[in-house]
Every structure is written in C-alpha cells, then in structure tokens.
Amino acid sequence: MKELSLNILDVAENSYKAGSRLTKISIEENGSALTLTVEDNGSGMKADVLRGVTDPFFTTRTTRSVGLGLPLLKMAAEGTGGGLAIESRHKDDFPDSHGTKVSAVFYTDHIDCPPVGDVVSTVVTLVQGHPDTDTVFTHSKNGSVRVSLDTREMREVLGDVPLDTFEVLSWIKDTLTEQYSEIQ
C-alpha cells in the first residue's frame, strides 16, 4: 500500500463485510505519533480467529488461502516503530456490544512512514459502496477534531435520498476537502 488512506479503505471494507451498521474511522495525530482506528459494530471475532488475523496464511476470503490486509498494516506500522492492536467481541458472547476495533500507530518522523494520502477519496469510496450503513470519520490533531463527517447527521436531512446519490457523494468530497484546506 502506497499510502495510509488505502490501508484505512482496506481495513474498513472488512467492517462492512462483517455487517457493521456504524463504522467509525479516525486519524489522530499527537506530535509524531499518528493513530489510525477503525471501529465497527459488526459480528466481531472469536478468540481463535482473532489470534490468526495478522498471519498472512489466515483469511476469510474464499478465492484463495492468503490474506494480506492486516499483516500489511501491521508490517507498515511496526516498520515505523509503532504497532497494531486489535480488540474484538463476537456477537455470540456479547450480543449487545459486539464489534471489532483495529488501531495502528505510526511514527511520522520515521523515514519508512508512508504518507497519509487521499483520505477524502477513501471516505467517499466507503460511503459509495455502503450507502445503507453509517460511517463516522474524524481527523484530530493534538486532541482537537479538525475534520469530521457523520452520515447519521446527513441522513437526518436527506431522509430517503440515498447516500450514494452522486450529488451527495460530491458534497462529502467538497466538505472534507474544504475542512482539510483549512488545517493545512
């Protein structure tokens, strides 16, 4: 993956696939530490599955037996002196609070740290592909939220107009681009 925004896209796709109704994506910068978090309320994983997810030869895909998403993210994070943490609660064991949280810490002053990249495209792509679920995105710096989007608020205004309507996707792109331009 050439940029962290592609890792976010890749990890978040797993959340939607797990049936998440609300997927929260955050980027938090504190000094040189940059934390990516994807938290969902999907089906969650049992302990034996959770132990295997960073093994490249473990995967849920059915087309072949290699899965590289989380192993790539782990390798990229560890390559900067950071790391990956995954917590998960399976729906059988936690019927009211199931879901998965993936957090990766990168150190941006390390030479091997990839650029954050085009996060706006990632958010637009996720909403386009999963318009019937909700997505919350925040980017904060040193504790204060600088860029945010919450499809639940959008849905309140839009009513039954689908989130993947082109004009709505354009609005998402424009509002995020505008918010990013103000913090550069």
């Binding site: 993956m1 592609l6 896209l9 890749d10 796709e13 895909r61 590289l68 998403g69 790539l72 592909g129």
Partner: peptide, 8 residues
C-alpha cells in the same frame, strides 16, 4: 473489485 489486492 475492492479487496486488498484491488485496492493495492
């Protein structure tokens, strides 16, 4: 196709 392979 938007799996890890496609995205990368």
């Amino acid at each position: 196709g938007m799996a890890t392979c496609g995205i990368a």
